[in-house]
């Protein structure tokens, strides 16, 4: 399909916010997250001929953004470490203590679990779409999502948190 300028504007307006949130929770830097989203759309426009129909656009944008994010670490050699929890931004909601606790729980997840969780919760991507983007099978995605939620649930219910964090 041919992506028109008009289509592109719609894509930017429809998906820039959720892409920003997704990558923010990966890099924890608002400025960097904005740069990555901008670069994602610039690359999407350049590569518009590769788009296989508008129904595939969201996973496609996520794939570009994930690649941009990964490329950043390659370029800068930044370590894949979980963030400091200070100075996290305020959510739209009103229960700030709960929001803080939930973010703390999400930060404790290893990237391989956190990433599919963010793609599903923020982007609404299906397990198959996440699997295609991450290059793993649907069953593996389901397993990672289950484990991520199980870990969050333990913390949610006040159970002991495992001290050792799993790494990618």
């Amino acid at each position: 399909m041919i992506l028109t300028h008009h289509d592109f504007e719609h894509l930017v307006r429809a998906y820039s916010a959720e892409l920003f949130r997704f990558v923010y929770w990966q890099c924890r830097d608002r400025g960097l997250a904005e740069d990555l989203v901008q670069e994602t759309f610039a690359r999407a426009w350049k590569a518009r001929a590769q788009l296989q129909g508008l129904e595939a656009v969201k996973p496609w944008l996520y794939r570009i953004l994930r690649n941009e994010h990964a490329r950043l670490y390659e370029r800068r050699g930044l370590p894949l470490v979980d963030c400091e929890l200070s100075e996290l931004p305020i959510a739209d909601g009103s229960d700030l203590e709960r929001d803080y606790a939930v973010r703390e729980q999400v930060a404790l997840l290893a990237p391989r679990y956190r990433e599919p969780l963010l793609m599903q919760v923020l982007g609404g991507l299906s397990c198959a779409e996440i699997g295609a983007d991450m290059g793993i099978g649907e069953a593996a995605v389901m397993q990672r999502l289950s484990r991520a939620r199980l870990a969050l649930r333990r913390l949610w219910l006040g159970e002991a948190v495992p001290k050792r964090k799993e790494r990618t």
Partner: peptide, 14 residues
Amino acid sequence: QEEALYQALSITVP
């Protein structure tokens, strides 16, 4: 739990 998760992650966009 899912609602709380979504709410906490829905930060304001610039």
